[in-house]
């Protein structure tokens, strides 16, 4: 307990000492995910990890594309990114008015996000890590029981999606020092394709064993946690090469 307290003191300091792509350090621990899997009882153990404080921006991704031109939209393998990849940029290596430097980069596929993180000696966060980080509000590590917090998140969905994206970093950091996990863009996770949800989301728990081979059906434990429900719906509707105007990403790192 004292060690945990000591770690809690160190975290903000460690965070300050973090390098160029600003990472926050999250302590991990036991976490009760909203996703209920038949084969996974009790809490999930999350190892300590580092998570980028903000999603990757247009400017950061542009630097990556310039240093790794095989990821330019006019050269990328079609199998890694569908035709809309970076379509909002004015050209293959310039941003333009529709893609401001500090806006989160969108229209990126899972493969592109993976490649970017690899280039930073990082990786995409797992779903569990993302959910764990996103459970926090400004003061609490786990705000999920608070209906007011849920309403705030739902509010994002009530805003029409035809407005320009805000810059990253405008929201107050959460209890871990991470920003923009809600209300800005959807984010890729490393294991997004492990969310095995039938296209018809109403058969909760009624697993089609033949389609998904074997047991381990996914149902929502916390049906009030719409933020998670909607993210699961979103990620499970996509393939690895897909891009959308609202999907971005951030990177994570293992901590020794």
């Amino acid at each position: 307990m004292r060690r945990l307290a000591a770690m809690l003191l160190l975290i903000p300091l460690a965070g300050l000492a973090a390098g160029a792509a600003d990472y926050a350090q999250l302590p991990g621990g036991n976490f009760r995910t909203a996703l209920k899997y038949e084969d996974r009882k009790g809490a999930t153990r999350i190892a300590p990890f580092a998570l980028m404080r903000k999603p990757v921006t247009n400017a950061e991704f542009l630097a990556f594309v310039r240093s790794q031109p095989q990821w330019r939209r006019d050269r990328v393998a079609r199998v890694f990114a569908e035709p809309r990849y970076l379509s909002h940029w004015t050209s293959a290596d310039a941003l333009g008015a529709k893609a401001l430097p500090q806006q989160p980069v969108v229209q990126v596929s899972w493969f592109a996000a993976q490649a970017y993180c690899e280039a930073q000696n990082a990786r995409l966060p797992s779903w569990d890590e993302w959910e764990y980080a996103a459970a926090a509000d400004e003061t609490r590590r786990d705000a999920r029981r608070d209906p007011a917090w849920r309403e705030r998140i739902l509010r994002w969905y009530s805003h029409p999606s035809n407005q320009a994206l805000a810059r990253t970093g405008l929201q107050a950091p959460n209890a871990y020092g991470v920003q923009d996990l809600h209300g800005l863009v959807w984010e890729w996770t490393e294991d997004f394709s492990s969310l095995l949800v039938a296209g018809d989301n109403r058969n909760q728990g009624d697993a089609d064993n033949a389609k998904f081979c074997g047991a381990g059906a996914l149902s929502m434990d916390d049906r009030d946690n719409y933020a998670v429900l909607m993210r699961v719906a979103m990620l499970s509707s996509l393939n690895a090469e897909d891009t959308t105007a609202n999907m971005g990403f951030r990177c994570a790192k293992d901590l020794k």
Partner: peptide, 13 residues
Amino acid sequence: GGGAASSFTAPGH
């Protein structure tokens, strides 16, 4: 699903 299972569509698709 009355078609729901076969029509799950992401934005832009």
